[in-house]
Write a protein that binds this DNA or RNA. Sequence first.
DNA 1: GATTGTGTAAAGTGATCGTTTTACATTGGT
DNA 2: ACCAATGTAAAACGATCACTTTACACAATC
Lengths: 184, 184
Amino acid sequence: MQASNDIRARLLDAAEALFDRHGFTATGMDRLTSAAGISSRTLYKHVGSKNGLMAAVLQARDRRFRRRVDVASVDAFFAALETWFAEEGARGCLFLRTWRETGGDVPEIAEAMSRHKAFMQETIGELVVSEIGSRDEALADEILVLFEGMVHAYTYRGEAMASAARRAVHTLVSAARAREPKTE
Amino acid sequence: MQASNDIRARLLDAAEALFDRHGFTATGMDRLTSAAGISSRTLYKHVGSKNGLMAAVLQARDRRFRRRVDVASVDAFFAALETWFAEEGARGCLFLRTWRETGGDVPEIAEAMSRHKAFMQETIGELVVSEIGSRDEALADEILVLFEGMVHAYTYRGEAMASAARRAVHTLVSAARAREPKTE
DNA sequence: GATTGTGTAAAGTGATCGTTTTACATTGGT
DNA sequence: ACCAATGTAAAACGATCACTTTACACAATC
């Protein structure tokens, strides 16, 4: 059981790196098995199929991501994103990328994407409350656009896009506070 | 020559639709030839390879996109984007998607992506000038993040993300105007 | 100490990949 | 009338695809 967890963790780590770097469709099963150091028989025993492997990878990535952005303020949220990119590199949202690469036609992948994005929306909504003092879905949506924009623009423009997003989010929050000064 | 242009146009149209809908790697050459109604020999005579086809598709798409966003104000720019999405659907930036799907390893595709993104940056920079009265790279970068965010968030949240982006861009431009009131 | 579970290595499944080739029909210009 | 260009249909190319199967090794459990 412990060895089984080891194997699964090794597989998911290797698969996440390969899918992220080379794309889902372009990564063959032989590359995955040899990178994880396991046989193809074992891989299929554990995750059933290539789609199943991707779904497991996305679930693990989502868990890791949630831990990373468990912070108290909007600015800390964007700072956490910036740290993630600096440490792991930024190649765009793996959920969206895989969802689109498969034409949205793979249910397990579409659902993993939906869950992840719903969590992001809820997280930002709560951060807005702690910033503004009340729910403000309009502001939350604006910040969601900035979040998504930073994730993707960072891939080709780098750190400048992180600074831009943080400046913009500060301006938007200030404007919202001035508009509706419930707290302070 | 006229028939040759017809064939090429038909090929690029069909290929763009298939690549956009199903992804670059997942779309096979037989699907492309039968959708365009041409033989594989003709396809290879015209574009040389699958990568060459994608590069040609991206170049045509870039031309079409530039015509669409040839507008006079930042708000008109986002309005043009919204119209594009309403008419053609939004499945994320085809340049970024294809670039990442190929791991950034196909030079012709990487260059098409770079050219397109450089144009976007320059276009937004000029729109900021006409809005603010002078160059403001910081504001332009913030708007670029909003643009990229709208493109990708629209794929899973729809029109709400277009409204959010337009609200946010208005707030950012107003704040910049208040900060640096060169022209009125 | 036989059984059950879980692993490996490696060959084999048929299908599909991108690309080339062969053979032939149609066309427009000199 | 002929030649060169440009198209089609279809077979063939070897490679690779996701996935399964066969045969075997080493554990721990009852």
